[in-house]
Design a protein around this nucleic acid. Sequence first.
DNA 1: CTGTAAACATGATAAAAGTCATGTTTTTAA
DNA 2: TTAAAAACATGACTTTTATCATGTTTACAG
Lengths: 229, 229
Amino acid sequence: MHNRCENCIIRELNSLKALKKDELKRISDSKVSKNIKKGEVIFKEGEKLNGVFCVRSGVSKLFKMCDNGKDQIVKMSARGEVLGQRSVITDERTNLSAVALSDMEVCYIPKQHLQDSINNNVDFTKAVLLNIANDLKFADNVIVNMAQKSVKQRCAETIIHLEDSFGTDCDGFIAVTLTREDIANVVGTAKEACIRTLSTFKKGKLISTDGKRIKIENKKALYRLIEGF
Amino acid sequence: MHNRCENCIIRELNSLKALKKDELKRISDSKVSKNIKKGEVIFKEGEKLNGVFCVRSGVSKLFKMCDNGKDQIVKMSARGEVLGQRSVITDERTNLSAVALSDMEVCYIPKQHLQDSINNNVDFTKAVLLNIANDLKFADNVIVNMAQKSVKQRCAETIIHLEDSFGTDCDGFIAVTLTREDIANVVGTAKEACIRTLSTFKKGKLISTDGKRIKIENKKALYRLIEGF
DNA sequence: CTGTAAACATGATAAAAGTCATGTTTTTAA
DNA sequence: TTAAAAACATGACTTTTATCATGTTTACAG
């Protein structure tokens, strides 16, 4: 049996929760469920999207390729994220690329339905607005951190943020495993610097690792570090 | 005679242009025009705002104070900007501080009116949404620049952005004069590094200066620099 | 005007971070 | 299972950027 949006709990995590029954029904009738493999491109910077991707499971990165050959990850998407929302709203080409970091289940929702709901359902428009406003607040804070904090501080911040966003598995490890290079691309540094910094954290018993998996051992010390010691 | 919002051209520059006649009338009746002196604090990070500030003239900086004692400027507000919009929408404390960089004329609009219009006028809600979505796109790009570009590149970028946002005066100088320290706080570097970089630009005839005033002499070269040469 | 504070400028040095090289370990796919 | 590729790790070195010190210029209030 096909999954219906009406019964989907993911909806509670994003702006789609403000949709009315009939809107939900229309969306559910036209949405397409997709399985995306790890490493697969969801969309590329500069593409014109004809819909958004509602993430049911799995993790993806939103990033920009830079002139220096590196990627800068702007956001990691958790479950509930609506990928492409911003560019569908403004009806312009995407500003970022999206790539799956694990196998993912997403629902593709044609943009016409969203635009209809934005035009006719103030509650939905408000929900989207709140969502984007929170993204903006978060982005502003990232700007400040990028500009004013050291690589070590940003590494600490990133680890904590990953744990906050994705939680921990049964062994206490952060429930998302990124390569050191991806972490470096979130932090905004070279992978060597990232590797070295995480090694330092490990020596100082701030974290422990098992392969790529990371466990926070001393959150307080990480926070102290972020604040500048 | 008191200035009426109905006749104010500034409105065309922001989301208030989507307001209907009666909404505009109510806002105009309750708004307060204020003159703000250079250096004056408009609001402080963490404050609860009871309204927004529509900028009629003058320039202000939106910034965050950091643990290291420096400020990071996240945005420079031009004419038409609605200061405090984001935090009034989300109904939370401000994430940034705002300080006037020149004498300013602003109109203070109580938040109740905005919230009423957001709840009842989809066109207005959409206009605000577009506005915030654009801010988000801009912020994402700043993140990428902060993380991946050198101080020299970011200085070049900042100068061009200032010219784009504020234009030039009759002599061709950028129509906003910041201290080197403020420029450094936009770029995300120390004031000495900023001063040195601008000196280099001057020697290379990329810009010329007159006191604090800056004129772009070779925009192409600045662009080439930004792209990495 | 003019004294004083703020802003600008620049040198010297230290610290942070990037780059390159190389070897090891882990993953992945045939 | 195993060979190849990718990821991890670390040393050596370079470049970039921050910090400190000091002198000059500019802006502005009395």
